[in-house]
Amino acid sequence: MNTRIYKEVFFEATHRLIHYKGKCFRLHGHQWRVEVWIEGTADERTGIVLDYNCIKEVVGRFDHQVILNADDPMAACIEAFHPVVTTSGDPTSENLAGLIAEMINTEAGRHGHNARVVKIRVWESTTCYAERTYDRQ
């Protein structure tokens, strides 16, 4: 029997979109909101599908970070002073949704949980979010 859980996490981070023609080309920050729906089989002994703290810890890796495209020439400059989280492609809410979902799935598997992200939303403002949905496999 599958069970679905939900977790909401916030983080603060800076990013820029090097392939975008507009103000988001400039380095700027957001309070990001991540909503995650996970489906899986609850552990027989604990009754837990996936520890909510696992989700919080994965998303927390982005908190107070600079997130840049791996091809961004600014990454090397900033790295001299502050760690930089790099992404393949521009760090849009769409791309971050996919990356965070993959990271959560990897952590769930690493801890032996039969659980996967089935839906994720990454909000970069109070009015804008990207959503990805996945079929349970």
Rank of each mutant, 00 (worst) to 15 (best):
M103Q: 06
R4Y: 02
G89H: 00
T86K: 04
F10R: 14
W32T: 00
T46L: 06
V58N: 10
P73E: 08
D51R: 02
E107A: 00
M103C: 07
Q65W: 10
E12D: 14
F25Y: 15
D135N: 14
D71L: 12
V59H: 00
E102G: 09
N69K: 07
L17H: 08
N95S: 07
R33I: 00
V85A: 14
K7T: 00
L96F: 01
H113Q: 02
F11M: 13
S88M: 11
Y20K: 15
H82S: 13
T127Y: 07
A75E: 07
C128R: 08
A80F: 11
S125W: 03
A97R: 05
L50K: 02
I67G: 03
R33E: 13
N69W: 07
I38A: 00
Q31T: 14
I18V: 04
F25R: 15
A70P: 07
V85Q: 11
R16Q: 13
C128F: 14
V84Y: 07
S93M: 13
M74A: 02
Y129F: 13
A80H: 13
T46F: 01
T92V: 02
I48A: 01
D43S: 08
E107T: 05
C77G: 09
V36P: 01
G22P: 12
T86D: 04
I78H: 14
Y52N: 00
T41N: 14
A76F: 13
I67C: 01
G109K: 04
G109M: 01
G40M: 02
R110I: 07
V36K: 01
T127H: 13
N2E: 05
A115T: 03
I120H: 04
I67T: 06
R136L: 09
R121M: 14
K7G: 03
N53Q: 15
A42Y: 11
C54E: 04
V122L: 06
T92D: 11
V117C: 03
L68G: 03
I78C: 09
V84K: 03
F25V: 15
M1A: 09
A80W: 12
F10E: 12
N114S: 02
G29F: 11
P83C: 12
L68S: 04
I78L: 14
E124M: 08
R116K: 14
V9G: 06
R16E: 00
H64G: 09
R136S: 10
T41H: 15
E44K: 09
G98E: 01
E35V: 06
T87F: 03
G22M: 14
V59M: 04
M103S: 05
A80S: 11
S125L: 08
L96D: 06
T106R: 10
V122G: 01
V36A: 00
R45Y: 12
F81Q: 14
R110T: 02
G112Q: 08
I78T: 08
I48R: 05
E44N: 03
T41M: 13
R61A: 12
V85M: 13
Q65Y: 11
T106C: 05
N105E: 01
G29L: 10
N105W: 03
M103A: 06
N105S: 07
N114I: 00
E35F: 10
W123L: 10
G47N: 08
S88N: 12
A97F: 06
F81I: 09
K56D: 08
Y129N: 11
